[in-house]
């Protein structure tokens, strides 16, 4: 079997196991949290009878293991279940499918993540390669300093600074990124500008530093010295000889940052009022809306698994030794 296919299959099998473990961990940690959906939604107004009515309606009066089993069997049939909120004993059931709840939010998050990635990935590769090329020059030092500065600030601080400069003092972009499904692409891009810029500033340093380090690491290898001795220019050495061997670690770091863009941007979502999936999951955890939490957790886990798989495949493809093993 071809090594790429073998890796993909092996990883996918592991991925399924990981998903199972994740769902188990999430479910049991939700069980450990104090309170349940009825108490969370009624807050101070919770009466024991009302909470009991909620539990009956949601099936929360059954043992945890039964509920988990019901959930797992439903998911295996492709049904993520319905959210706890909106269910009602009297009147019409207005609860929403987890899928309907998650998909629009996921689409928004993926949109923001793609914009940020489209700016950040080429930018950090460019900066990484050029700083490796001109290392220890003034250019190298200033790029390093700038990117390390932006990564060192907390996200919300970067976000507030951008709002201050680009929304308040020089009102170029809006400070509210409240898009909805009817927002047109251009408008969406305009509204998402500041959050995307924030995310870019936060992730560029990591990817750029990793690219630079991976290349510099290789520059000490004998084969690079050989290339130099044969008369290749330093740009040639880096682009033709060093970079191909550096793709694997760079791809891993990029995958890690892309996954972060999907699962870890709740702070940016809150500051810019962007309706993404992070906010959805935080709300769901606070309200103990277990089906939604599980749904989000699965999506996040799948994101990590797929992106890491992709990074590994890139690592194999770009490395002839792994692509054609003896």
């Amino acid at each position: 079997m071809h090594p790429v296919i073998k890796t993909v299959l092996g990883r996918l099998a592991m991925g399924v196991l990981t998903l199972f473990a994740v769902s188990l961990i999430i479910f049991s940690s939700m069980e450990l949290l104090p309170g349940d959906f009825g108490q969370a939604i009624l807050g101070q107004a919770a009466l024991p009878e009302t909470v009991a009515a909620f539990r009956r309606e949601l099936g929360l009066d059954q043992p945890a293991i039964v509920r988990y089993w019901q959930w797992v069997t439903a998911v295996l049939q492709g049904d993520l279940g319905t959210s706890f909120s909106g269910r009602n004993a009297s009147g019409v059931d207005r609860s929403r499918e987890v899928v309907d709840l998650v998909l629009p939010r996921l689409r928004n998050t993926l949109f923001l993540a793609s914009i940020a990635a489209l700016i950040a990935v080429p930018l950090s590769l460019l900066l990484g390669v050029t700083t490796a090329l001109y290392r220890n020059t003034f250019y190298d030092r200033s790029v390093n300093m700038a990117t390390l500065t932006t990564i060192s600030f907390p996200e919300f601080f970067v976000a507030y600074l951008l709002i201050l400069f680009f929304a308040s003092l020089y009102p170029i972009f809006p400070s509210l990124a409240n898009v909805d499904s009817d927002t047109l692409f251009g408008e969406r891009l305009y509204r998402a500008a500041l959050p995307a810029l924030t995310l870019t500033l936060v992730i560029v340093a990591h990817m750029m530093r990793m690219t630079r380090a991976a290349i510099i690491n290789l520059l000490a290898s004998p084969y690079i010295q050989m290339a130099r001795l044969s008369g290749a220019s330093s740009a040639e050495v880096i682009l033709k000889h060093a970079l191909p061997n550096a793709w694997a670690p760079i791809a891993t770091v990029i995958a890690f940052n892309l996954a972060y863009l999907v699962v870890g941007v709740v702070v940016v979502e809150v500051v810019f009022v962007y309706p993404g999936i992070g906010q959805l999951m935080v709300d769901a955890v606070a309200m103990r809306d277990i089906p939604v939490v599980q749904g989000c957790a699965l999506i996040f886990a799948v994101t990590y698994i797929l992106l890491n798989l992709l990074a590994d495949i890139i690592g194999i493809i770009t490395n002839p030794r792994l692509l054609h093993p003896r």
Binding site: Y160, I163, A167, S168, P174, S175, L176, V270, F272, V273
Partner: peptide, 19 residues
Amino acid sequence: LLSIIDPTARQTALMNGDI
């Protein structure tokens, strides 16, 4: 009606005329 939970975001939005 917009849900803007972060107080800084809410106040900035009012100052910028977004709400």
